[in-house]
């Protein structure tokens, strides 16, 4: 990534954070200023899902081409996705404390992100239990594909049919995650939200590049010493 792009990501994120905290967002029934979490929590979850998708994508690429670089990228994406998933869980949990009254109460959305964390955890433990490189690459790719097909049951189906307090569940107002496919946000909110989405995606891509480079160097170092 070019130097100016890195600088841009830094300035962009700083601007998004400042605007996200200060910009007037109007009155939102039931949420008020607590709706500002949308600017940070939703992009984090989006990046986590994007990372998981990329991890699976590179997994499939490995299975097709048997190029170890694809496996390194797949694992790097999964690691970053795990970090963003933890961040989304923590921010969501703090928000839940002030909006719903408790840090954790097994709302369907909380269950789904918990499952996502479990899947990542299982993915990493599978990787550490496989010693042969090619086998580790192909089996973890297969596992991430299987996990990715069962995840939609949680993220898209269950929160819709069971009652949920999370914005977007059955019986609550939904700014983004709703069945009609429209966004219910004020203009200010919409701009900051999309800016944040772009900023976080850029940050993720930068981190992804760094992580991949580190992993590649480590891989070649091990290959030389072995």
């Amino acid at each position: 990534m070019a130097r100016w792009m890195k600088l841009l990501v830094g300035v962009w994120i700083a601007a998004v954070v400042t605007l996200g905290v200060t910009i007037p967002i109007g009155y939102i029934p039931g949420l008020g200023d607590r709706a500002r979490i949308l600017f940070f929590h939703v992009p984090m979850s989006w990046v986590a899902v994007l990372a998981f998708l990329m991890s699976m994508w590179y997994g499939i690429a490995y299975l097709r081409k048997r190029d170890i670089m694809n496996d390194i990228k797949s694992a790097s994406a999964a690691e970053l996705g795990f970090v963003f998933c933890i961040l989304a869980t923590i921010t969501g949990s703090i928000w839940a404390r002030f909006n719903w009254g408790s840090f954790w109460n097994w709302d369907p959305r909380e269950t789904s992100i918990f499952v996502l964390l479990l899947i990542y955890g299982a993915y990493f433990s599978l990787r550490s239990a496989l010693e042969i490189e090619e086998r580790r690459a192909s089996l973890s790719a297969v596992y991430s594909i299987v996990a990715f097909v069962t995840v939609p049951f949680f993220i898209f189906i269950m929160p819709r049919i069971t009652f949920s307090l999370h914005p977007g569940g059955a019986g609550s107002v939904a700014p983004i995650l709703n069945t009609s496919g429209k966004m219910y946000m004020g203009t200010n909110m919409k701009y900051v939200f999309f800016a944040s989405l772009i900023g976080f995606t850029g940050l993720y891509l930068w981190l992804f590049q760094l992580r991949t480079r580190i992993a590649t160097v480590t891989y070649h170092k091990h290959a030389e010493s072995a």
Binding site: I119, G121, A122, L126, L139
Partner: peptide, 20 residues
């Protein structure tokens, strides 16, 4: 079946897949 520590790994890998 291809991994080490099969016994502990099995429920760990299966649980998230089986949860839905």
């Amino acid at each position: 079946s291809k991994a080490n520590s099969k016994g502990t790994l099995y429920p760990v890998l299966s649980f998230p897949i089986l949860l839905p």
